[in-house]
């Protein structure tokens, strides 16, 4: 009974995964026949300054995403895990961005930030009236903000679930000992959430490797190459410049990077995490 699922996953998941390595050693413009190219794509990509720029940018986006989103999502998760009425009400609204597609979010932010037609023009606040998506630094800031706006709700949800599984008795014991809210947060909540934090950070890492939709619609990787992270580098080389070989090299780098980072984070979580992962299936 496992066979149909296995067949589907093999054919459209595992085979392409091997295919990406094979294609990285061929020349293929996206139509017609494939021709072997040996390692020439690899040497040209590894010497491509654009690819290295994209790689560094990917790490930058990844790092800043973790630094911005983790504390906010963690605090919001603790906040929404509380059983007060108003918090339950706020949580309903906090999760709204989860419903929108990345394309819809980007389209809306693009409209909102348009210097001539957007919010700034209407409000007449000079500070807001900047060329948000035309300036390399500002554009990267907008991308990070939009990513945070889209994904913090999801991570909040993960942390909310994590917090609710912490035994109440730990807090009761601590408050008998006279520990205040802050002490309880540092001494109980944070250590108890260790695996939740690892899960959430892992998802952020893999997510920033593949954050394609939002950035593609918002900036298209621009201005210049200032928001061209690896996933966009792959897409542009493959489907805009019709060089599937070099694009597959970038894709292979993405896959290897994703696997290594995910494994590293699991290792960080120690034996317990990997054991429970395997228990999962």
């Amino acid at each position: 009974m496992v066979l149909p699922a296995l067949a589907f996953f093999t054919f459209f998941g595992a085979v392409p995964l091997v295919g990406v390595v094979i294609l990285s050693m061929t020349d293929w413009p996206g139509f017609g026949a494939l021709r072997g190219a040996g390692l020439s794509n690899w040497s040209s990509i590894l010497q491509s300054s654009v690819m290295w720029h994209s790689l560094m940018l990917t790490f930058l986006v990844m790092g800043l995403t973790i630094v911005i989103q983790t504390p906010l999502a963690l605090l919001l998760g603790v906040f929404t895990a509380g059983h007060q009425r108003y918090r339950a009400f706020l949580a309903v609204l906090y999760f709204l961005p989860l419903l929108l597609s990345a394309a819809a979010i980007s389209a809306a932010y693009k409209a909102l930030l348009d210097p001539n037609f957007g919010l700034a023009a209407g409000l007449g606040v000079p500070w807001l009236k900047q060329n948000w998506l035309g300036d390399p630094t500002l554009a990267l800031g907008v991308v990070l903000f939009a990513l945070a706006w889209q994904y913090i709700p999801f991570h909040t949800l993960i942390y909310q679930g994590g917090v609710r599984q912490i035994p109440r008795s730990l807090y009761e014991a601590a408050s008998i000992d006279g520990a205040g809210t802050v002490r309880q947060f540092i001494n109980i909540t944070l250590p108890q959430l260790k695996y939740t934090i690892i899960t959430s950070v892992t998802l952020m890492v893999v997510g920033s490797l593949t954050a394609f939709d939002l950035i593609y619609v918002l900036t298209g990787g621009g201005p210049g190459d200032s928001t061209r992270i690896l996933a966009l580098d792959m897409y542009k080389r493959g489907f805009q410049a019709n060089q599937m070989g070099p694009a597959s090299v970038v894709a292979t780098i993405l896959v290897v990077l994703g696997l290594c980072l995910a494994l590293l984070l699991q290792r960080l979580g120690g034996k317990d995490a990997s054991a429970s992962q395997q228990e999962g299936l």
């Binding site: 296995l6 998941g13 893999v206 993405l254």
Partner: peptide
């Protein structure tokens, strides 16, 4: 079956979007 479950679990660790080019070929 144990192999199958490991194999499927692999799909969680890999950014599947990165396989879009071979998928396009297929």
């Amino acid at each position: 079956l144990r192999f199958s479950s490991r194999f499927l679990l692999l799909g969680l660790a890999i950014p599947l979007q990165a396989t879009i080019i071979p998928l396009y070929l297929i």
